[in-house]
Design a protein around this nucleic acid. Structure first.
Lengths: 222, 222
DNA sequence: AACAACAAAATTATCTATAATTTTAAACCA
DNA sequence: TGGTTTAAAATTATAGATAATTTTGTTGTT
């Protein structure tokens, strides 16, 4: 991840914690204890508290007054909610980005798609997927929209890792190719429609919980 | 405003500051100095810093490491951006809320519309307008979506107050009535389409700046 | 008068310490 | 045994103090 040295300590802590929450290293519902984290990062708890506020804003943690902060839990409803929000906002972003897309950008996006198809683990697949979406949406020139979409992507990745933690199978991404093809032909509406459907595709898989039981797990796969 | 006494001090401060920024009491670009604010609220600066992080997340303030926090500036591009994001997300919320809307809720929404038509100042008009939107969208059962829309409403209100600070003229809200009528008839698609158009309507007016010059001001009016 | 270098003041970011609250555990009684 | 009250420990939230950085003001020089 980005380790910009001139960041404030609070930002650095929030990035590390965000990565842990997204990757599933910290369980949903787990308490985040400020003194412990402060000790781990060799700081006082003041920057830790500021990091907490940042995580809350991203929807990765939930704080209750006087009783601390815990990792946000999530259920199928939230997976669906994030998927629908992404669909609505990414379609909006694509419509604005499309006029500014160059052949060079589309080629980079194609590279990202290939990298995704070749990846052997969820983590690298997710990164390639995120790169693809970021590449074709960034030129929209709407910073607030991009920030919101980024937070939703983080949530999506979290659901994905939770569902596919152990096993993982390769899928070649036809949707990405269809989107690129439509964009190259200048068919923005078709690209937007495919993107909207693509993001709302929700994968589903049985996984074992910590207690050894089987349950259905769901994740946004796109 | 809500003065929930059991809130943490940081939350209380952030609410007061948010209100000042939205109402225009603090100018865009103005620096927020933590020690001064801490003194005003009779606290130390630690809760003030946490309030700053919260304001940043809402897009109302911008912080740069080691050089403090300032009130977010905005231009026509951002007004448009917020309007489009609201259109996309409120339409999504309405589609999910519609099946759960009761006659009682729609009547309350009609009351809010009437209150808006009768209001003599921007502030009360904005409040009535926000109530209308909140009433018909809240039953969607998507908390993250509602939170995001609320932040966008705050931004909208900010633009509105900046544009119409001094003068204000009454407009009866035909869009709200059309939306209610469509919802009562169960015509969700028509209601959603009208809502989408409604939120994207951007008002425009010449206002005088602090330096006495005239400039064009723009605001989301819906 | 304009510009640069330097010094002083103000401000931010962080640390250490204290007060208040909640959680955990234990003891006690029905 | 089970539930309730009480006490102890842990944890959160805030205050006060310190170090580091930026901003501001002043002086000197061309």
């Amino acid at each position: 991840m980005a380790k910009t040295a001139d960041d404030t300590i609070a930002v650095r802590i929030s990035k590390v914690l965000a990565d842990r929450i997204i990757s599933g290293a910290i369980e949903p519902g787990a308490r985040l204890r400020q003194d412990h984290i402060a000790e781990e990062f060799q700081t006082s708890h003041v920057p830790v508290r500021e990091a907490f506020r940042r995580l809350e804003a991203q929807g990765l943690a939930i704080g209750e007054p006087r009783r601390g902060v815990r990792v946000a839990a999530f259920d199928l409803g939230e997976v669906r909610e994030v998927a629908e929000m992404r669909a609505a906002l990414e379609v909006l972003a694509l419509r604005h980005a499309a006029p500014h897309l160059t052949a060079a950008i589309l080629n980079l996006a194609e590279e990202a798609t290939k990298a995704g198809d070749k990846s052997r683990d969820v983590r690298s697949w997710e990164e390639a997927n995120r790169t693809f979406h970021r590449l074709i949406l960034a030129p929209c020139g709407m910073p607030r929209l991009i920030t919101t979409i980024d937070d939703l992507h983080a949530a999506s990745a979290r659901f994905l890792f939770a569902a596919w933690r152990s096993e993982w199978e390769i899928r070649t991404d036809q949707d990405h190719r269809a989107i690129l093809s439509a964009l190259r032909q200048g068919n923005i509406e078709s690209a937007a429609a495919t993107l909207g459907r693509h993001v709302q595709w929700i994968g589903q898989k049985p996984v074992k919980t910590a207690s050894g039981k089987m349950r259905e797990a769901f994740a946004i796969v796109g």
